[in-house]
């Protein structure tokens, strides 16, 4: 092909591999880190606003709390929010999309209208309002993020299901007299899943960014140390303590980047055309 160069594939492979390794390391840090780091992330001390040093690698905040301990603890929360919210969004999205695509008719119209409705709403504004409504708990934030991010998966799944259900072996299954819901669960959904795979990583990336945004606006809970909360504190001390905003910001950036690259690599490997569909409707968190 005239327009293809091996460099591109290399980039994808390389970046995919690097990001997978990074994510693995991050997960290990999040799981094991708090056991290794002896410092309590919410323990105050008299050495407030100390820049990074051998005794506190990432410095301390306005209450003298160790920023490394907080960052590691935050990794746990941010990953948890990302993975759980994305998981919920993908499950709901796949189910909704599959039902809509498979059964068609009024169900399809209704479900797609609902998903369209969720997609056109300004997400951050709605998220802020809902978090204000149901309170700032960790689970609530996960719920809000999941609630606002399932439609994308639903649309992709629906498209895929529409394609899959035309295939011959579905007709074969029908002829064997197997019930419709069984065909949907056993044949159609499993065959539509590959198309959804890349969306999972992208959803995690989105969810981490969403959580950071919500906590940054001060809507998180002070007991739930997430990177967004660290950035919120960091902004309050931006000039007095650059490390409080630079370090968690870099951590968030690299992590979201890793999930995005992973998603892209998976997407490129599975189906190069799919990315287009997936990407067009993504909106910027501004």
């Amino acid at each position: 092909m005239l327009w293809r160069r091996p460099g591109r594939r290399l980039l994808n492979n390389l970046s995919g591999r690097v990001s997978a390794v990074y994510i693995l390391v991050l997960v290990i840090v999040a799981l094991v880190g708090p056991l290794v780091i002896s410092k309590d992330p919410s323990q105050i001390s008299r050495s407030v606003l100390k820049p990074p040093s051998p005794s506190a690698w990432f410095g301390t905040d306005q209450l003298g709390r160790d920023q490394l301990a907080r960052l590691v603890d935050g990794a746990r929360v941010s990953l948890l929010v990302g993975v759980v919210a994305a998981g919920m969004a993908v499950i709901v999205g796949v189910l909704v999309g599959a039902f809509a695509g498979f059964f068609g008719g009024w169900l399809d119209i209704a479900l797609m209208r609902v998903s369209e409705f969720f997609q056109v709403m300004p997400t951050l504004i709605v998220a802020v309002a809902i978090v204000a409504l149901i309170g700032p708990g960790l689970f609530n934030i996960i719920l809000v993020i999941a609630m606002l991010s399932w439609p994308q998966t639903a649309r992709v799944t629906r498209g895929e299901v529409l394609r899959v259900k035309q295939l011959e072996y579905i007709d074969v299954a029908r002829c064997q007299g197997r019930p419709e819901w069984r065909i949907l669960l056993r044949e159609v959904i499993p065959n539509a899943i590959p198309a959804v795979m890349p969306l999972i990583a992208l959803c995690v990336a989105e969810a981490i960014l969403q959580e950071a945004s919500i906590s940054f606006l001060g809507l998180g809970s002070p007991d739930t140390i997430s990177w967004g909360l660290l950035l919120h504190d960091g902004q309050q001390n931006l000039l007095r303590a650059w490390w409080m905003s630079v370090i968690p910001g870099v951590a968030t950036f690299i992590t979201v980047l890793a999930f995005n690259l992973l998603g892209d690599s998976v997407s490129a490997a599975l189906n190069p055309r799919l990315r287009l569909i997936g990407r067009v409707r993504r909106r910027v968190k501004i």
Partner: peptide, 10 residues
């Protein structure tokens, strides 16, 4: 990709 991964407020 970087642009989409960076938290805008940061």
């Amino acid at each position: 990709v970087s642009g989409q991964s960076v938290p805008v407020f940061w």
